[in-house]
């Protein structure tokens, strides 16, 4: 795993993606700090992070797009399969390298509250609690990006899908207000999600029968639930969209609450998408 980690680290710096990621992040946070902390003289550094998290929509896909897509395009994935390292080690090694690349600008950003504290009252626990959540939010988005990169050999497509997915997640709570809260709206959304899960399974396992039957089974269960207990489905769609929002949970930290449930949620998202990435690599061996 160490070999994969160091190789990925070197490749990221060589391909400039690490530099672009770090400079964009520092630029966003710098502009935010200038606006809030210097010009407006607000002592809450967490507001800067709250503003800057929009940057992830662009910079997370920039960093992750080449991670696995490039291996497939160059056919170096065949080398990785033939080396005495497991696919889990490949994914973990690459992901660890991305985290290190992410931690470099974050280490610089971590000095800002201390600097501002020299000139006024800064509540450091909230600042650093938010910074910790900012790290977890970014780490979860990077895991999503790694998985998207594993699905294609086209870096541009990986970046495009990544931006769309993160943007949707960013606005999911706002969008949920426009969604139908009726039982019918919920069941339609559940059927759509079931079909998406089925397609994802087909994509990951290469087994069409498994994918289609899973999608069909989940859809049938949703429709059955709709017929049996409509009340249980009322308001479910906006609730799901709110629950799946990674950004919404970050704002809890910005409001001064260290939410352990959110920490567990972020870690679960990371584990889930890294698991899917491993399965995506394994699937190529079987197809």
């Amino acid at each position: 795993m160490k070999a994969i980690f160091t190789h990925e680290l070197r490749s990221s710096f060589r391909s400039l993606s690490a530099w672009v990621f770090a400079s964009f992040l520092l630029c966003f946070v710098g502009i935010g700090a200038m606006m809030y902390n210097i010009q407006a003289a607000v002592s809450n550094f967490e507001y800067v992070l709250s503003l800057s998290c929009l940057a992830f929509v662009v910079i997370a896909p920039i960093l992750t797009m080449r991670v696995l897509a490039e291996e497939r395009r160059q056919r170096t994935d065949q080398l990785l399969y033939a080396l005495p390292v497991s696919t889990t080690e490949v994914i973990l090694g690459k992901y660890a390298a991305l985290l290190v690349l992410y931690l470099v600008p974050l280490a610089i950003i971590a000095v800002y509250p201390l600097i501002f504290a020299r000139f006024g009252e800064v509540y450091l626990p909230t600042s650093y609690g938010s910074l910790f959540a900012f790290f977890l939010l970014g780490a979860a988005l990077l895991a999503v990006g790694v998985f998207i990169s594993s699905l294609t050999d086209n870096q541009g497509l990986a970046a495009g899908i990544g931006i769309a997915v993160i943007l949707f997640n960013y606005y999911s709570v706002s969008l949920s207000e426009y969604m139908s809260s009726s039982a019918l709206g919920s069941v339609i959304a559940l059927v759509a999600i079931s079909c998406a899960v089925g397609l994802l399974l087909k994509l990951l396992t290469g087994n069409g029968t498994l994918g289609y039957w899973t999608g069909f089974g989940l859809s049938a269960a949703s429709i059955a639930l709709y017929n049996l207990d409509r009340e249980a489905l009322e308001g479910l769609l906006p609730e799901i969209m709110g629950t799946l929002s990674l950004f919404e949970r970050f704002y809890v930290f910005v409001n001064g609450v260290f939410d352990l449930k959110a920490v567990v949620f972020y870690l679960s998202v990371i584990a889930f998408f890294l698991f899917l990435s491993v399965q995506s690599l394994e699937k190529r061996r079987y197809n």
Binding site: A3, T6, S11, R14, Q74, R75, T76, L79, L83, P84
Partner: peptide
């Protein structure tokens, strides 16, 4: 493999170091 799995942006030395490390 039929199409050698090479990281084109690296030098042979860098490439061999990576493969060697991956082989333990």
């Amino acid at each position: 493999p039929e199409q050698p799995s090479l990281y084109l942006g690296e030098t042979p030395e860098e490439y061999l170091r990576f493969v060697g490390e991956a082989k333990g």
